[in-house]
Design a protein around this nucleic acid. Structure first.
Length: 584
RNA sequence: GGGCCCGUAGCUCAGCUGGAUAGAGCGUCGGACUACGAAUCCGAAGGUCGCAGGUUCGACUCCUGCCGGGCCCGCCA
């Protein structure tokens, strides 16, 4: 697999690949697929190995390389044979001119693909439980999902971000039993915290007093039957929870449309229909009093349970109903529709079962349902001297909000020490602190377990969010100090420094990174890009003076480049949910 | 026992889905603020890529087996 596809390759790469293909008498795509990045920058920007062509012609690879290189030259790049490789190096001035032109034209859409009405996606992410707090482990689904939603939009998709909140289940029995007869003035003021406390205390009581459980069950039964008084408590618990969730989402820069909080309760009226349909189609059967779908003929040993022996439905049943809803209402009529579930890898089997059941039910779009799994979050434990799962064990919950506030607090302290005059101190600290936590979560491959350590997640140095923020702030500082608009014309030949070349190569690769991140549903690819670009800019900043009255022409050209870096950094940051800032 | 994920430097991770001498960050050691922000930059030390076979001109990458870790495996979500 090559570095580029025909759709995303910069024009010089296409030209070069064309010429090499012609010289070898093969297809351009073959060359693109073969092309790799050389191990050292001095060797060039792209290399095409000659091994297989050498084998076909029964000559040594270096011989072929030497023969091809002189024949495949062209405008915009240099070509040379080095051992068994044909190395290509983009002409820096041409590359810079090309990429700067594109950035300045596309602006905040640079790197994006054109919107395509056939591309639609429903993405399920975050999806916390009502009446429970947002904990640290919710960060993963929330931010990975948010980033994928933004990345797919940048790839031309219309995206529906769905928050499939857990707003149905026996836990509401406790809420109803306890709060049903609260005085109105107390009832009105109930918050998520109150409901969490109720849940915890009721669970504790239930351990010694069986009647607590009994009352809760009855209360939930009334809720299911549509009892108005029970429903009133349910609604309150739901709205109080959502209000709190939205506060935290706001801190994270995450937003769901109001009509996209489509929780489990929404589907409860449809579940009988699902069971009936599955039975009628001969997909489901009764077994030990329960309704199951036997999947053993399809390589899945565990059957999918649609209904318990006591008649209650299960979450697989709800997922079937919700998949139909998403297809029918959220873009399923489009050719390139997809429905993503950004849910931890522990639920792989569950989704495998649900998707297979959808297929057995005869829905031809069942193959568009995709589980996008991610690794669990492990927290460092000094006690155990190891990584442990930060489970919701009683009293052991790390609140997401607390982590974000702590991060912000630490950044405020640093700003106070280094830049006490900063305007917007609180908002800036929040962007940097939250960004640090978010970036720490997204920078590694999605499927890895992430090991959460405060010192690392809140670190301000190295491969971190603040490293990106710092690069952005440096671009803005220069642009501000220039005290004149970014020049509209400039002499590209003056941008001859090696650092400028590195930046050009990176900028030219942004679109490829966005495309790949979209195909692989992996925000870490954007994070890596941002680290590379920020790094190249930091090095440039160290080596190259931009504001230089003695050399106005060079200063102009560099200002243009700095502005492009600024723009692409901002574009990339938006995709992964880092909030751009002006100063720090 | 079966299924999925993982094993690369002391630690945390990249390695472009088979190509050139395996790369970063943290930590350690040593340098750079009389230039646009040192939350930065430059350099050094540090690796039998878990182990053993196999496929290939070529394997960190693909296949098989083993070792070690995580998650899942019918009435929780």
């Amino acid at each position: 697999m090559g570095r580029f596809t025909e759709a995303t390759a910069p024009s010089w790469v296409l030209t070069a690949a064309d010429n090499i293909a012609k010289a070898l008498d093969v297809a351009r795509k073959d060359i693109l697929d073969l092309a790799v990045t050389p191990p050292k920058p001095e060797m060039g920007d792209l290399a095409v190995p000659m091994f297989q062509y050498a084998k076909a012609r029964k000559v040594a690879p270096p011989v072929i390389a030497k023969e091809i290189a002189p024949k495949a030259g062209g405008a915009g790049y240099a070509i040379s044979a080095e051992g068994p490789y044909v190395n290509l190096r983009a002409d820096r001035a041409a590359l810079l001119e090309d990429v700067i032109g594109r950035v300045r034209e596309a602006k905040d859409r640079f790197g994006h693909a054109a919107p395509d009405p056939e591309k639609t996606a429903a993405i399920d992410y975050s999806s916390p439980n009502i009446a429970k707090p947002l904990a640290l482990h919710h960060l993963r689904s929330t931010m990975i999902g948010n980033a994928i939603a933004r990345i797919l939009r940048a790839n031309g998709f219309t995206v529906y971000g769905i928050n499939y909140v857990g707003d149905w289940g026996t836990q509401f029995g406790y809420m109803i039993a306890v709060h049903e007869h609260d005085a109105p003035e107390k009832f009105e003021k109930l918050t998520l915290d109150d409901f969490v406390k109720t849940y915890v205390s009721q669970r504790k009581l239930a351990e010694t007093d069986p009647s607590v459980e009994e009352k809760a069950r009855n209360a939930f039964l009334r809720l299911e039957q549509g009892d108005a008084s029970a429903r009133r408590v349910w609604e309150k618990a739901r709205s109080a929870s959502l209000a709190k969730f939205k506060q935290v989402y706001d801190m994270l820069g995450v937003e769901f449309q109001d009509d996209m909080y489509i929780g489990e309760s929404f589907f409860s009226p449809m579940l009988d229909g699902v069971i009936q349909e599955a039975k009628q189609k001969g997909v489901a059967k009764e077994d030990q009093g329960a309704i199951i779908v036997d999947l053993s003929a399809h390589g899945i040993d565990t059957p999918a349970l649609l209904q318990k022996s006591d008649g209650a439905t299960l979450y697989a049943t709800r997922d079937i109903a919700s998949a139909k809803f998403r297809h029918d209402k959220l873009g399923g009529d489009r050719r390139e529709w997809q429905c993503l579930y950004v849910v931890d890898q522990g639920q792989s089997l569950h989704f495998k079962q649900v998707f297979k059941v959808m297929e057995l039910l005869g829905y031809p779009w069942a193959d568009r349902l995709k589980h996008v799994p991610f690794g669990v979050m492990l927290v460092w434990s000094d006690e155990d001297q190891g990584w442990i799962k930060g489970k919701t064990r009683a009293g052991n919950v790390v609140l997401l909000e607390d982590v974000l506030n702590e991060a912000t607090k630490r950044v405020v302290k640093i700003i106070d020490a280094r830049n006490p005059e900063l305007a917007d101190k609180e908002a800036t600290a929040r962007a940097i602190g939250v960004g640090a936590v978010v970036f720490n979560d997204l920078k590694n491959k999605r499927t890895n377990d992430i090991k959460f350590k405060f010192e690392d997640a809140l670190s301000l140095e190295g491969e971190t969010g603040p490293y990106i923020h710092n690069a952005l702030v440096r671009t803005k500082s220069i642009l501000r100090k220039a005290a004149r608009p970014v020049p509209s014309t400039y002499d590209v030949k003056l941008l001859s420094h090696a650092r400028e070349g590195e930046i050009a190569v990176l900028l030219a690769g942004f679109k490829e990174a966005v495309a790949r991140a979209g195909l692989e549903y992996d925000p870490s690819l954007i994070c890596r890009f941002l680290l590379d670009l920020a790094g190249a800019f930091h090095a440039f900043h160290h080596d190259c003076l931009v504001l230089d009255d003695a050399n106005k022409a060079l200063s102009d050209a560099r200002l243009v480049l700095v502005d492009c870096v600024r723009l692409v950094l901002e574009n990339g940051m938006m995709l992964v949910g880092l909030q751009p800032i002006e100063a720090m």
